[in-house]
Computed example of a mutant assay.
Amino acid sequence: MRVSIDDVAARAGVSTATVSRALRGLPKVNAVTRQKVLDVAHELGYVPSPSATRLATGRTKTVGVLVPFIDRWYFAHALEGIDQELRERGYNLLLFSLGGYLHGQQRVFTEQMVRKQIDALVVLCLGLTPMELAELQRIQIPMISVGGPVKGCQGVHVDDVAAATAATQHLIDLGHRRIGHLRGGINDERNFVVPALRSEAFEATVLRAGLELKAEWIIAGDFTVTEGLAAAVRLFDLPGERPTAVFCGSDEMALGLMFEARRRGIRVPEDLSVVGIDDHDFSAPAGLSTIAQKPVEHGRRAARMLLAELDGEIGAIQEELMPFNLVQRESTAPPQG
C-alpha cells in the first residue's frame, strides 16, 4: 500500500500541514521538526504525489503548447519535436488549443488556463491580441514562439522573407516571366504574420526582376490543399493568358493546384511550373519543388531553449533563424515556347 502524507504525519507526531510545510522548505517549521519529518518520510519511503512535488519544488515538470490548429502539417510536426525533447528530459506536454482563428469567433484565453499547471509555454506561430499577451505576461514564466514571429516572444523559425524570395527567384532563374501566386487567405493573414511575409517577398522579388505583377494572378488559397485547389480553379478560369509558373505560399496549396492542373490536362512542368514552401510529407512523392524546412527540429530547438532557461541559464531563450534549402524536383522547369 502506498504511504500517504497522513502516515508520515502520524509517525512523526505532527500535523499533515506541518509535513507539507517541512517537505516544501517553508518557514515556521523549526529545524528539529523539519529534520524529523524528512527522516520519517525517508524511512517510510514516502513518495509525494505529482501535485505535492509541484508544491515542494515549485515545478510541474510540464510545458504548455498554445496552438491555433492541431490538424495543420507544420503545427503537427513542430508539436512532435517539442514532445520528443520534453519526454527525453522527463517533462510532460500540456496542449492548449485555441480552436482556430481569432476573427469570426470569440476566442477565450486567460491566465487562469495555464496558471500553476505549467513551467513554461511554447506559442505555435499564432498572433495574440494585446489582452492575450497581457494574460501571458501575468504568469511570468519562460515563453517562446515556433514557426514565425509572434509579438512579445522570442522565436524559432525560418526567415520567411528569404524563403519566399528564394522560391520566387528559382522560377525567375528558370526563365519564367509570367508568374502567379497562391497566398494565404484573409483569416490566415489576420492571425499569422507568416503568410503576409511570404506574399510581400514574392511581390518584391517579381518587381525587382522588372516583371509585371498581375493582381488577378495573386489568389488566396488559405494554406490548405482544399483551398489551394479552389484557388487554382479561380486562376485557371480567368480569361486571357495564363501564368507559366506559380509560387504557392505552402506545399499544401501547391498540391491542390497540381491536382486541379492534372484534372484540366495542364501539364506540370511543361505547361506550368509550381513551387511551394515546407517540404510536406507528400511533396517528394508528388515531385513538388519546394523550399524545405524542418518543423520537428524547430520544435526541439525551442524546447531545448525553454528547458535551459528553466535550469537557470539566463538568456537561453533567443530569436533563432533556422536553415532552409531549395529542393528542385519535377514540378519546375524552364518555360516551353
Rank of each mutant, 00 (worst) to 15 (best):
A196Q: 03
V225T: 11
D159G: 06
A215T: 00
F236H: 06
F247A: 01
Y91H: 12
G155P: 05
Q137E: 15
V8W: 13
F259S: 05
S289E: 00
V19D: 07
L257N: 02
A166V: 12
G81Q: 06
Q137R: 13
S273N: 02
L55E: 09
E200T: 14
V114M: 09
I314L: 05
L102P: 03
A10Q: 15
L326M: 05
A17N: 12
D237M: 05
E132L: 05
R2Q: 14
K214Y: 05
V296Y: 02
G249C: 11
P239K: 03
C248L: 02
V233D: 05
D6G: 13
A286I: 06
R264Q: 06
Q112P: 06
E320H: 10
D281V: 12
Q84V: 13
P130L: 05
S199V: 12
I317E: 04
E200L: 06
Q154R: 15
V29C: 11
G315L: 04
A164F: 05
G13S: 14
E212F: 11
R72E: 11
L257K: 01
A232I: 04
V67K: 03
V275P: 01
L124T: 08
G148A: 09
L171P: 08
T53M: 10
I314Q: 10
A163W: 00
A231E: 00
V47C: 12
D7A: 08
G312S: 00
A204Q: 10
L23Q: 10
V274L: 02
G64E: 07
F259D: 08
T129A: 04
I219S: 01
M322F: 01
L321I: 11
Q84A: 13
I317D: 02
R11M: 11
L66P: 08
M253E: 02
L238E: 09
N92F: 13
S20G: 14
P50G: 14
G104Q: 07
V233H: 09
S273K: 04
E43V: 11
A163K: 00
K214M: 09
A201R: 00
P239Y: 06
A163N: 01
Q169A: 07
R198E: 06
D188E: 14
G148T: 12
A166L: 13
L174G: 07
P48W: 00
A245N: 08
V193C: 04
D83L: 11
E309W: 01
R264T: 03
P335E: 04
L44S: 10
P269K: 10
S250P: 06
I172N: 01
L229T: 08
H77R: 13
T168Y: 02
E43T: 10
I82Q: 03
P68H: 05
